[in-house]
Design a protein around this nucleic acid. Structure first.
Length: 442
RNA sequence: GCUGGGGUAGCCUAGUCUGGUAAGGCGCAGGUCUGGAAAGCCUGUGCUCUCGUAGCUCGGGAGUUCGAAUCUCUCCCCCAGCGCCA
């Protein structure tokens, strides 16, 4: 939620921010109209309540001194009727006002480039050495602005779908039989590799003061709505039948909501978490995209970084988060690029967002494996998470970033680490202490 | 799931039976004092706004009443015991 007081005092930046996002100014105009009505009604209601409180006090005195306040009681009843009527109006106005308010996106960070589509995202840097098939070289150069390092390969590696089938590591067909499309069984050493990745990443973050946490996998509507963007929420979540519970789409949400309605001590900040959980997503808008394999699925595991900090430290922590994610991907020796999202591509909560995209040689593309967001105090305001300062309680800032999206990284490893003949997968060196083996073959 | 006990401000606690508009302590901030500090003393310390002799606030919501922390209903959560259980 945005800061209503700030919006009233200084609307220009909000109009500017909405314009850059491609978000209509009508919503802002509508908010101001509703807000004015709402405040006028509030004043009327408060005035009537004050009158009522005064009379009620007098009744108390009259009763104490043995009198009979019949007339005063009748007066209060009339005022109550007036209050009821106004409050009924106000409830309608208030609901509409809040609905509009919830649609207004966060103020974007001033460094964010103005743009519409993903072509306008800002390329930041490339790391590693990619294996690029000849005809994919143009795409590679375009996406790295000529700064990417690559070796040309004569033959594309097998797609992860073919490879995992050949090596018996994933059973998609039977998962389809019992659960439908976009589900999987992961088997054998591929599961061991996943567990190794989890342990490796949790250790990595724990060493950097991130507290490992496994959150609830389900949340109540209210907490979910406060932790996320209500619009995305409807499309992407699974609901438990007959219960007020939704399966989480990322551990970001239960971790963010963990401190809701709390007031933190400044000396406790920053608070860092490394969350581990499965993520459940309906992928409703993704028909036809990545239909095979385990790249885009309804259920996947993820290690997530989450930070609660003072608003003035938020940008530094965004760098810390993307830095951690890069260090992890670098230690796996996967070539990647980092992009800084343009204004039109940010979610409603984001002030700023980086993505980290790994090169997938069989797809001939960079694909997202990490998303690091600075939500400033927007998410914390909806969740009512504050910290104490001598000048009063202030909303904190929240940031989140993927540390490791397990299924996608398994795909990235399968594509970047398969032997030339496609008969085995080499285990990245950093993981061998965790797997206890160095190769996966049929 | 059952029975009982609970949920009051950043924290701790009184008030609930018997309805009259949240008392006190700790912590924190400011003041006083001091060479400086501690202690003591004074003031402030839930939220909102149009800053008032204002409105709201006792886990959430609804109800009864002129008036609800207090009575009624309902939901959520915590603790203890019992039951069930990987």
């Amino acid at each position: 939620m945005i800061d209503v007081k700030l919006l009233r005092e200084n609307p220009a930046p909000f109009y500017e921010s909405c314009r850059k996002r491609g978000f209509g100014k009508e919503e802002l105009d509508r908010f101001f109209a509703l807000d004015t009505t709402w405040r006028e009604n509030l004043k009327k209601i408060n005035d009537m309540k004050r009158k009522k409180n005064e009379i009620t006090q007098e009744i108390a005195k009259t009763v104490k001194s043995g009198g009979n306040p019949l007339q005063a009681k009748a007066g209060v009843k009339i005022i109550n009727e007036g209050i009821d009527a106004l409050e009924r109006d106000q409830a309608v106005v208030e609901k509409e006002r809040e609905d509009v308010l919830s649609l207004i996106p966060n103020l974007i960070h001033q460094s964010v480039r103005e743009g519409k589509g993903d072509d306008e995202n800002k390329f930041i840097r490339f790391w590693g050495e990619a294996r690029v098939f000849g005809s994919d070289m143009d795409e590679f150069k375009l996406r790295t602005e000529g700064k990417g390092k690559a070796t040309t390969i004569a033959k594309k590696p097998m797609s992860h779908v073919d490879l995992e089938e050949k090596l018996g590591l994933v059973d998609l067909e039977r998962a389809g039989k019992i659960a439908g499309a976009r589900f999987f069984y992961i088997k054998g050493r591929l599961l061991k590799l996943e567990l190794a990745l989890i342990n490796y990443t949790i250790d990595f973050l724990a060493d950097r003061a991130y507290v490992p946490v496994e959150p609830p996998y389900m949340m109540k509507y209210d907490s979910m709505a406060r932790a996320t963007d209500i619009e995305t929420f409807k499309e992407s979540l699974y609901k438990i039948d007959g219960e007020d519970l939704y399966l989480i789409a990322t551990s970001e949400h239960p971790i963010a909501a963990m401190l809701s309605d709390e007031i933190l001590m400044p000396e406790d900040l920053p608070i860092r978490f490394a969350g581990l959980s499965p993520c459940f997503r309906r992928e409703a808008g993704a028909h036809g995209k990545d239909t095979k394999g385990i790249f885009r699925v309804h259920q996947f595991n993820k290690v997530e970084q989450f930070v609660f900090c003072k608003p003035e430290d938020a940008e530094d922590f965004l760098e810390e988060l993307i830095g951690n994610a890069e260090a992890i991907i670098q230690s796996l020796n996967l070539p990647y690029r980092v992009i800084d999202f343009c204004s039109g591509e940010l979610s409603r909560l984001n002030a700023r967002k980086y993505d980290l995209e790994v090169w997938f040689p069989s797809q001939g593309k960079f694909r997202e494996v990490v998303s690091a967001s600075n939500n400033t105090d927007f998410q914390a305001r909806s969740l009512n998470i504050r910290y104490r300062t001598p000048e009063g309680n202030r909303f904190i800032a929240t940031l989140n970033s993927t540390a490791l999206a397990l299924q996608r990284i398994l795909v990235a490893i399968m594509e970047n680490y398969q032997s030339e003949d496609g008969n085995e997968i080499i285990v990245p060196e950093a993981l061998i202490p965790y797997t206890g083996f160095s190769r996966i073959s049929a």
